[in-house]
Amino acid sequence: MPNVFFSSDHHFGHKHIIDFESRPFGSVEQMNEMMIESWNAVVRAEDTLFHLGDFSFLGKEATRNILSRLNGYKILILGNHDRGRSRNWWLDAGFNEVSEHPLIYKEFFFLSHEPMYMNKHMPYVNVHGHIHGQKYEGNHHFNICVEHWNYTPLTFEQIRDTVVASEEGSD
């Protein structure tokens, strides 16, 4: 049975993100390789992965090379660093689908790059990236940035179960 995974903010090829976010890598090459290994350790060819933005700072050929090495059917929601390139650029680089706007998953989860406004009365959860090591309080936001999850994508069930556990803990 195929799984559905989520991740964001890999910043492949972005040397300065190592310092900006205190990533535990000695070089951008080491970072890229470890993130590819972490992705492929959990995502299989038949799985789907929603990438919630800021995928690569590399040129098209280098980005295509990375995408060709990553398992799964890959869907990109454009992040702020991705938007300088057209939707077709990302499709040509190897994403299977590209969205310029947030998506709704399972009629309950808002998938976006930047966190969306969610008041406490809304029954939805916003799965997002963008803010890297930061975290919003409450049960309405789930930060899927790689820094929070050891550079490894999470399944839908892992996210759902974490959200449910945090809701039960707040009662």
Rank of each mutant, 00 (worst) to 15 (best):
residue 106 K to Q: 10
residue 88 N to A: 12
residue 133 G to V: 02
residue 116 M to A: 13
residue 35 M to W: 03
residue 131 I to L: 05
residue 162 T to N: 04
residue 111 L to T: 10
residue 55 F to C: 13
residue 136 Y to L: 06
residue 107 E to G: 13
residue 119 N to S: 01
residue 96 N to E: 15
residue 118 M to D: 08
residue 116 M to Y: 08
residue 60 K to E: 07
residue 121 H to C: 05
residue 152 T to M: 09
residue 114 E to V: 15
residue 81 H to Y: 07
residue 83 R to M: 08
residue 92 D to T: 11
residue 25 F to I: 12
residue 61 E to K: 14
residue 171 D to K: 15
residue 112 S to K: 01
residue 140 H to V: 10
residue 97 E to C: 15
residue 58 L to S: 07
residue 74 K to C: 14
residue 64 R to A: 06
residue 67 L to F: 11
residue 39 W to T: 02
residue 31 M to K: 12
residue 84 G to M: 10
residue 29 E to P: 04
residue 27 S to M: 14
residue 87 R to C: 11
residue 72 G to L: 00
residue 4 V to S: 07
residue 101 H to C: 07
residue 3 N to R: 04
residue 2 P to S: 14
residue 121 H to I: 15
residue 105 Y to R: 10
residue 91 L to M: 11
residue 86 S to M: 14
residue 82 D to W: 05
residue 94 G to A: 12
residue 45 A to D: 05
residue 15 K to E: 03
residue 138 G to V: 04
residue 139 N to F: 11
residue 50 F to R: 04
residue 121 H to N: 07
residue 144 I to W: 02
residue 16 H to F: 11
residue 130 H to L: 11
residue 39 W to S: 03
residue 14 H to W: 04
residue 109 F to Y: 12
residue 37 E to V: 11
residue 42 V to T: 08
residue 83 R to L: 04
residue 167 E to V: 14
residue 66 I to M: 00
residue 104 I to H: 08
residue 170 S to R: 12
residue 12 F to K: 09
residue 10 H to I: 07
residue 33 E to P: 06
residue 90 W to D: 02
residue 162 T to Q: 09
residue 80 N to W: 10
residue 15 K to R: 13
residue 53 G to F: 00
residue 96 N to A: 05
residue 50 F to M: 00
residue 56 S to Y: 00
residue 76 L to P: 09
residue 10 H to G: 02
residue 14 H to E: 00
residue 20 F to V: 02
residue 3 N to G: 13
residue 144 I to A: 03
residue 104 I to C: 03
residue 136 Y to N: 06
residue 144 I to D: 03
residue 1 M to F: 10
residue 59 G to K: 15
residue 151 Y to Q: 00
residue 146 V to C: 07
residue 53 G to S: 13
residue 34 M to H: 13
residue 76 L to Y: 00
